[in-house]
Design a protein around this nucleic acid. Sequence first.
DNA 1: CCACTCGTTCTTTTAAACAGAACGAAATAC
DNA 2: GTATTTCGTTCTGTTTAAAAGAACGAGTGG
Lengths: 296, 296
Amino acid sequence: MAELNFHHLRYFHMVAHEGNLTRAAQRLNVSQSAVSTQIRLLEERLGYPLFERRGRTLILTEAGRIALDHADAIFAAGDELLNTLGERHSRQRQVLRVGSQATLSRNFQIGFLQPLIGRDDVEIVIRSGALGELLAGLEAHRIDIVLANIAPQRDAATPWITHTIADQPVSLIGTPELVGKAAQLETLLAERPLILPTIDTSIRSGLDALFNRLAIRPKIAAEVDDMAMIRLLAREGVGLAIVPPIVVKDELESAALVEVERLSGLEEIFYAITLRRRFPNPLLAGLLQGKPEQAG
Amino acid sequence: MAELNFHHLRYFHMVAHEGNLTRAAQRLNVSQSAVSTQIRLLEERLGYPLFERRGRTLILTEAGRIALDHADAIFAAGDELLNTLGERHSRQRQVLRVGSQATLSRNFQIGFLQPLIGRDDVEIVIRSGALGELLAGLEAHRIDIVLANIAPQRDAATPWITHTIADQPVSLIGTPELVGKAAQLETLLAERPLILPTIDTSIRSGLDALFNRLAIRPKIAAEVDDMAMIRLLAREGVGLAIVPPIVVKDELESAALVEVERLSGLEEIFYAITLRRRFPNPLLAGLLQGKPEQAG
DNA sequence: CCACTCGTTCTTTTAAACAGAACGAAATAC
DNA sequence: GTATTTCGTTCTGTTTAAAAGAACGAGTGG
């Protein structure tokens, strides 16, 4: 199987943005025929025409637009690589840059950062985002520490350290109406609409295994990666939610929501991820004291 | 200026992951010498050694690790392109995939999606993340609609449509202790620690302009891109916050926080961003009815 | 209709990539 | 300690991919 040829893809990228093969060739400092040939080769490799030939005009096909999107990402990453290596600057003062996964409980985050909060000599920058993006920021040295509820994959070349900070049990929770009276856990899981975490969250695989074990085909009303959103949807009666009870503490106390049962064997763990560096940000030491590194 | 050679980068990528040049060459079905030469050429192009030669072992340098991170992203995008075009399956049932910027008020999100919530024939998938990532998902057709409080840049090749959904005024808000008595807005901005939105949020540029106009150098305690986090930090008395009052509605009602003053000329706008498509998700039509497209 | 422009295809030329041999250094086995 | 094996580098000659240039057909504008 031939690999994707990025040289061909670059020519395609230029033509797609330029909208004209001749001008693109000029910008690339090559002949028309070279560009025409390479695009044809790329089309053969991908198995689809990337342009619709209308007269002398090239119109992007749907496949062409998909290819263009990926090409945009690819060449942006290439440019970023050149820029990053072209301007490496050293670390500034006492700033802690935190990348915080959006699904994390805000109360948990505040608690973790408490030792640094309010210090005059410390500025905290908090960015929220998805794990992949935050880890990219960590490795590119834009972020000092990532707070997450997913432990990222590790391989030999991965320079980060994952620290276990806390963990939370997980329960089935819903409005009294939806839960009904004396209902069994398995019956509820099988019959009621559910609000599930999305497939890339840490609980979901455990959940899917549970559904398999119970031979249940869940009726999914919503899949959400953000705990605060799960809480609100549960309050709306959209479905039964599967979350750590602490997320809906207030609602449980006011009886707006009820906890059916804890799901044994499931828990949500919170992690802090840092980069193994020769000169780590000194602010990290205090924060991570006593928090164990995750094994293997 | 020579472009980045992705063929060289692929060889580097394989060696970096394999940790051994000979095995990498075998996996690539080429000779050692071919791989050795191409990596040397890449090092020359980037201006840094990517490996430290320790005996016969190759150890990634810092530059090498940066390059590897980008290479990972690049070749993942390439593989995704091949997969996407290799298995183009038609649109399934009625699923709405929402990409939601983490900074957005959850109450606002629920309100916007209300027409679809609870429908048996509709499944809602909600992913939160940073705008760039969400827009990438939009263009890759993984997301049907992005909810954000930043209007993304537009250029001629950009296929998305930005709809204005709502806007909120912005105020200076803090604990009664921090606000003090009869204090003037400008004095507070100049003297008190502040919790500001991060530089890539829509309010920040307006804020920086305001500080410039008032010749104020803000004492920044924290920069945060997530409104819910701003609310909690304000409650902790970390500093005065600059947010839409609706974010801290409960705290204003209970007098845990007080509103000093609205910042005239500043507002937070909420946007829904969709892709201009020949066959848009039918669920979008109802959601966006009456929401004006943003002018170029 | 004619002149010009654009993209495609083909053949030849050019440049990049590769294989294989030789080599030096490091690692391993005895 | 010595002999053998393994690994990565460098060089030269060969192979392959990319490019140039010519010819051509179709489309566009005057």
